[in-house]
């Protein structure tokens, strides 16, 4: 018996094993491409959210701090829109807003947008906000929320920044930890509701009219049912609930 017909890694490879090894290698490459293509093509679409990280622009409007930092502006698409204000990373801007609430301001940031929902990731550093040089359109003043009634909704609690486009996907179980970290760090939580007719809506969540604390974190990204009061403030829907009313389904 010789090394010529018995495979030993440190010796010359037998012809039969060499042929098999070449076929196996070629099969590996073809199989890798095929399986990768199949697995990738089976992923579900994750939504139309975008975040143009590279483009910073000035947004002029009126800013508020309650229930979350928001800016009413025409500088998104020419219409009066409300944009949630967040940091470039996973944090809110409450502490950076200081005494600017209620004033006409110019904010420097990059736009995160998903269809009608918008958020502005404000620039780092103190230059992110300044008072506007001239008076702004009075229509940009924040409207008093209009109560729409009590409702029970089924859906998912998520963080607004990721779902608007900072991440794709920005929802579901795999994104749960990130959403939890974002909300813990000050990003406004939102409720994505879908009814039996597949109508979907996104509502910014509040507790007793103010911002949510960590009481919501255990339920983030789970399939849940909530009961609360819905109101409309401009183009933003608000859902005021108690964390105790959140129920996993």
């Amino acid at each position: 018996m010789s090394k010529k017909d018995f495979f030993i890694g440190w010796a010359e490879m037998p012809d039969a094993d060499r042929r098999f090894f070449l076929k196996a290698g070629a099969g590996l490459l073809i199989g890798a491409a095929g399986v990768a293509g199949f697995v990738a093509a089976s992923q579900r679409p994750v939504g139309r959210g975008t975040w143009d990280l590279a483009t910073f622009k000035a947004f002029t409007g009126i800013v508020t701090a309650s229930p979350y930092p928001m800016l009413r502006t025409r500088d998104i698409d020419g219409q009066v829109r409300t944009a949630l204000l967040v940091c470039q990373t996973k944090c809110g801007v409450d502490l950076r807003l200081q005494n600017m609430a209620g004033k006409a301001v110019v904010i420097n940031g990059s736009l995160i947008q998903r269809v009608d929902h918008a958020s502005i990731a404000v620039a780092d550093g103190p230059e992110w906000i300044r008072e506007a040089d001239a008076p702004v359109d009075p229509a940009l003043a924040f409207p008093t929320p209009e109560p729409l009634g009590e409702i029970t909704l089924a859906g998912e609690i998520l963080d607004s920044k990721c779902w608007f486009g900072a991440m794709r996907p920005g929802e579901g179980k795999v994104h749960k930890a990130c959403a939890s970290l974002c909300i813990r760090s000050g990003i406004p939580p939102a409720f994505f509701a879908r009814d039996a007719r597949d109508n979907a809506a996104l509502l910014v969540m509040t507790e007793n009219g103010g911002r949510f604390g960590e009481s919501l974190l255990a339920h983030v990204a789970d399939p849940v049912e909530v009961t609360g009061a819905v109101s409309r403030a401009g183009n933003v829907l608000l859902l005021d609930v108690s964390a105790d009313s959140v129920r996993r389904v």
Binding site: L29, A32, A33, A36, G37, A40
Partner: peptide
């Protein structure tokens, strides 16, 4: 091959 194919296919 797998990683490049996955990215392109996605």
């Amino acid at each position: 091959t797998y990683i490049v194919s996955f990215v392109i296919a996605t």
